[in-house]
Nucleic acid binder design. Sequence first.
DNA 1: TAGATTGTTAATCGATTAACAATC
DNA 2: TAGATTGTTAATCGATTAACAATC
Lengths: 217, 217
Amino acid sequence: MKNQEIVFSKNQLQRYPIYLKLFRQLYEKGQISVSSPQIAKELGYSQEQIRKDLQAISGTPGRPKRGRSLERLIDDLEVFLGYRTETKAVLIGTGHLGGALLNYPNFESMGLHIVAAFDNDPAKIGERLGGKSILPMEELKGTMEKEGALVAILSVPGHVAQEVAESAIEAGAKGLWNFAPVHIAVPEGITVENVNLASSLAVLNHRMLSALSKEEQ
Amino acid sequence: MKNQEIVFSKNQLQRYPIYLKLFRQLYEKGQISVSSPQIAKELGYSQEQIRKDLQAISGTPGRPKRGRSLERLIDDLEVFLGYRTETKAVLIGTGHLGGALLNYPNFESMGLHIVAAFDNDPAKIGERLGGKSILPMEELKGTMEKEGALVAILSVPGHVAQEVAESAIEAGAKGLWNFAPVHIAVPEGITVENVNLASSLAVLNHRMLSALSKEEQ
DNA sequence: TAGATTGTTAATCGATTAACAATC
DNA sequence: TAGATTGTTAATCGATTAACAATC
């Protein structure tokens, strides 16, 4: 009995943490189950999409007339999203953004454990930031190997991002979480996820201006 | 002669700042024009997609055998992305992430001018952060109206994001740049763009684990 | 039972890719 | 001229939506 390969699109994957957040809120309010029409109303997704999304990550079926158990959904989502499995990460680049990420309180609860922070600025080495002391880049490989870190969080300036990415891959990183506003080329088998503020702003700006110009007519 | 309505998908809009970054790099290196095969090689997009993307934002056609002028492309992209037009914004929530955003040096060059920062913590009012002094929420509406700010950047905790969003809309915001990990419900005509780290991490994690398990086989 | 909600199968929609004539 | 690259039109692919029988 082979597991049927389910393909998850990027959009779909992005929706799951949003479901989880909602389900936790509803559960805290005392609700015990939830239906796709309710979710649709709360999040603005279509009912069909919600049903497909939840079917894909839940082993148990929903129940007509009642919907799905919030407790079970939360459980399924936490497992699916890997929140119950620790993934070790290093953070490279301890500027303002790096500092904010080191202080972000929720990564641990998402299973992401940042084991160390790195910078190439000698003045910063040894300083503490977000509870971690900053190490020199020379120690990257040793640390990643010792800790078994799979993820490198890149909060470095764009012009060094490619080079830093290569060091991280050389040190054993299989996933790069790239906050620099540049494309990073990687070999087969390495995953890159970009958080690009310029891209996000482009979407906001264009959509907002379209909406405004429509309003004017 | 009516402008033919071009619809830009979210993915497409997100690509433009990445093109721009690349074109600026190539231009600085002395290159004067660029072809879609070269861009495809650099960024990993398909040639066809690149041609469609650039056609959509450039008034002038490319030239067979030579490609497109980098100078013109950079110009077209800066205009299209609104980098030549100032948009005023306020930032709400001056935690670590808010601080990092206030210190982000590139927003001005993207046409986004943060005119003020707000927080509801009395201890923070009056402090300075990223060159701005922190104002109390009571002054939000007055400030946004006086400055004509269209965008509110929300770097507040998730549990207050909806409420803060409503205040911002009430104060005249037409676009919300939401860094809180929750869905925000808004009336017609208001644009929300989410930067959701939990969503981004979900994509990274799932893709990385898929790639790793494929490798094992 | 009646009705709300489920899961599945088919239809639609939109974005990406392929094919190819036009042209510098 | 030959060949690389363009822009356009058609085909494919994938995701979302619609329709509807199943069921608690």
